[in-house]
Design a protein around this nucleic acid. Structure first.
Lengths: 142, 142
DNA sequence: GTAAGCCTTGACGCCGACGTCAAGGCAATC
DNA sequence: GATTGCCTTGACGTCGGCGTCAAGGCTTAC
């Protein structure tokens, strides 16, 4: 099959396939008139790449999987190098998720603090002079 | 103070300050010879920007905070527009964290699956012919 | 023969937040 | 007056993964 069909079958674009080839990730044979020609195995490689890309893997990180498949293994992720990428990615994800959760907590706390500061200013505007520390201010003031 | 001192006091670079100015975020007065001149309030604005940037806010998202400070409020995050940015960012963070956790789960499952596939192939290589479904294979085969 | 629909290579554009280099001006010090 | 160390503007580079356009070639259908 030619580049357009492969792209369509994998749900991507010809530009993407040419880009992968330029990176040495998905080289293609050529027919008489210079057109790229692909087979079913290439589709399998491409699907492996796309799946990992959807997971957020860098293109370079997909290379071990592709090479594993090209080496004849029925699946791209059973080779040691692929497993190593999985593990490294898990570590990265854990680290990133942890950082994001920390940021979320900080931003959440800032939001609460800023809202409380607003409420206090509003109360002061209503009853100027001093604070009236009762309770449930948030509920009353909306 | 001039640009170099402000940058140093905020732990950033002069290039960054000029970039902020080019974005209209942190305009500077000029002295006689054309040098940028800043005061303590500018340092406060800059620190607000940097804090939010460290949280992963886009530069544009810091603008309401800066304008809030410049409007005379003692803190940049008590204005409605700033609170709205906080809330939007919390939603974004929650969505992103959720996606990453889903990816993490998928990748983790793939790792387990791929490792099991390897182990089974290893067992077959040791005892060719048929499967020997005992237990603790992972432990024995390392 | 010509229009349509594939394909080719090459090259520039995009996004964000700056880094880095170039060429030159101003001020203080030796 | 010459060096040093600030400062100025302008402009190109970076990173990844492509999008998009240009100019042209091949094949098939009408």
């Amino acid at each position: 099959m030619r580049i357009g069909e492969l792209a369509a079958r994998a749900g991507t674009t010809t530009r993407t396939l040419r880009y992968y080839e330029s990176r040495g990730l998905l080289p293609a044979k050529r027919n008489g008139n210079g057109y790229r020609v692909y087979d079913e195995d290439d589709l399998k490689l491409l699907r492996q790449i796309r799946t990992l890309q959807d997971f957020g893997f860098d293109l370079e990180e997909t290379r071990p999987f592709v090479e594993c498949l090209r080496a004849g293994h029925p699946e791209g992720d059973t080779c040691p190098a692929s497993l190593a990428v999985y593990r490294r990615k898990l570590d990265e994800l854990d680290a990133l998720i942890g950082e994001l959760q920390a940021v979320r907590a900080q931003v959440g706390a800032q939001l609460v603090r800023a809202q409380r500061a607003r409420d206090e200013l509003a109360v002061e505007a209503l009853a100027p002079g001093g604070p009236e520390p009762q309770c449930e201010l948030g509920g009353i003031l909306r």
